[in-house]
Design a protein around this nucleic acid. Structure first.
Lengths: 145, 145
DNA sequence: CCTCCATCGTTGACAACCTCCACGATAGCG
DNA sequence: CGCTATCGTGGAGGTTGTCAACGATGGAGG
């Protein structure tokens, strides 16, 4: 009598996380497409916009959880379209990624589109749900460094 | 005076979701590697184990949020290693994916390894947190169909 | 019965993404 | 000075996501 004893897939937080994440990314990606961006590029751009004096690519990699070599390509693409520029940093090994005025405008517009697109999947969550979710996900990230 | 007005990246649920999801998937993947599986394959295998009489590939695609063409490859790999077999279904268009006894054993072992690996990232969450998280993520998925 | 349309699995192509390794340039320490 | 670490960069190889097409089958309606 061999019945299934394991944890059902829909109880697996890893699975639920990646499925929900996938849904959000898909929605966001189609919204960002109209602004010539994908989620990855958008994330880098936002990071560059947040810090008036630029971010090092290492920081970007750490915050986003990406391999540094990926960041190179993302910054290249953003720089090629004039949304960001690389400037020398105090440490001559690092190069600071700084958003251009055009980049900031794109970031605002794309951000609005992205937030609107996410309202579909997130429709069922009230402000309390969202705050709790943010807090929990931040803890998960902190515990996986 | 152009300061940054947008939503900080760390408040974006889509971003937090995909970052946390990435961390979980990475941890799970390295744990599953010792059992010759990746998360995708493991998910399909669990699904096949959950249903005694098999799953159609369409169901797999729907539950996992994948393109049907991806499911073909995943089932191929699981079948090649004898963990699953394809059986004809009542509807002659569909083919039922059924776990073999060997597949069930692997599923149990791999599942234990996966759950253990996830305890790293999820360490900070108590049972209440996890239940709420499951519930919220399920709602997100439901709202994005 | 036959036609038209939907569904399921499958294949192939292509873009995006992740992971790892190696390199040159620079920094910092002893 | 020499040793080691860090930052950005490039490249290889494998995995995943997306899309379009196809054959086979099923189902509804004339």
């Amino acid at each position: 009598m061999e019945v299934f004893m394991g944890q059902p897939l829909t109880d697996d937080l890893g699975f639920l996380l990646s499925r929900a994440s996938g849904a959000l990314v898909r929605a966001t990606n189609t919204a960002l497409g109209e602004h010539g961006l994908r989620v990855r590029q958008y994330s880098v751009l936002v990071l560059a916009c947040e810090r008036e004096d630029g971010v090092t690519q290492r920081e970007v990699a750490d915050v986003l959880g990406l391999d540094p070599s990926q960041v190179v390509v993302l910054v290249d693409e953003l720089a090629d379209t004039g949304r960001v520029e690389r400037r020398p940093g105090p440490d001559r090994r690092t190069r600071l990624v700084v958003a251009t005025p055009a980049g900031r405008r794109v970031c605002e517009a794309a951000g609005a589109a992205a937030r609107a697109a996410q309202e579909g999947p997130l429709a069922g969550l009230d402000d309390g749900d969202r705050d709790r979710l943010r807090e929990v996900l931040t803890r998960v990230w902190a515990a996986s460094g």
